[in-house]
Amino acid sequence: MSDQESEETLSPEHSSVTTSAQQPDTADIVIEVDDVNFSYVKGTEVLRDITMDIRKGEVTALIGPSGCGKSTLLRCINRMNDLIPTAAITKGEIRILDTDIYDPKVDPIELRKHVGMVFQKYNPFPQSIYENVAFGLRIQGIKKKPILDEAVERSLKLAGLWEEVKDRLDSSGLGLSGGQQQRLCIARTVAVEPKIVLMDEPCSALDPISTTIIEELITQLKEEFTIVIVTHNMQQATRVSDKTAYFYLGELIEMDETIKIFNSPSRKETEDYISGRFG
């Protein structure tokens, strides 16, 4: 998009890393959003002309004022918007590794197995911790206890929850604290080993301490997963993300390295937003 101009303003080490890693190797692009329009009700588009690339192993933050369409875009990526009967992409396509995910041949169920999602409000199922984490595997028909045990342990460890709950895997997931519940949800999501994890304001319902833990968790998780996170909290975006995309009124205003967006945004609107003039 604006790669050419941004290069100059970036600090040297950043520019060297990113340019060398990105520019030549398009295969690194995991999600390709190509000129997408989206509407919930026919005629009123809530996303317009969105084009962006999300690369493997990066944390991409979507920021912007409420109602700007960032959550909508997130839900487009794993086709959660399919649940709303009239909602549809009206233009463009979203490709995940060169497969158009709105191709009729694509099964949203299969898609969602590869593109996990963590929601704003933590909501473990009213089942045991173990069952919560094993849920995704069970629905894929995995019944063997050793495999499940192993996956549950690995996922809980990934989510940094293992030490806290390993003695009470059979107790209800609802008995945990808020932050723990959200980490349980993350464990549940990563248990099926998705390639991409979408996070829709994962910390907005949590206290600062839990937020810190989750943020640390996100930076660890990006080793294994490509993460897209919607957040309201700009500090959080700077803390966890590699790239940041700023949305305003359904349009992608600017997307670039996080450091660049927050230090020297190229667009005026972005600057207004991050400097707190509105939003």
Binding site: R112, K121, R138
Partner: peptide
């Protein structure tokens, strides 16, 4: 049953019926 349960289950790649019988009905 809170909508969130259904959404979560679907987001994990469960089919509609898996969601119904593994999440909604037990809840």
């Amino acid at each position: 049953v809170p909508q969130a349960f259904t959404e979560n289950s679907l987001a994990m790649g469960a089919t509609k019926l898996q969601t119904v019988f593994r999440v909604v009905v037990p809840t």
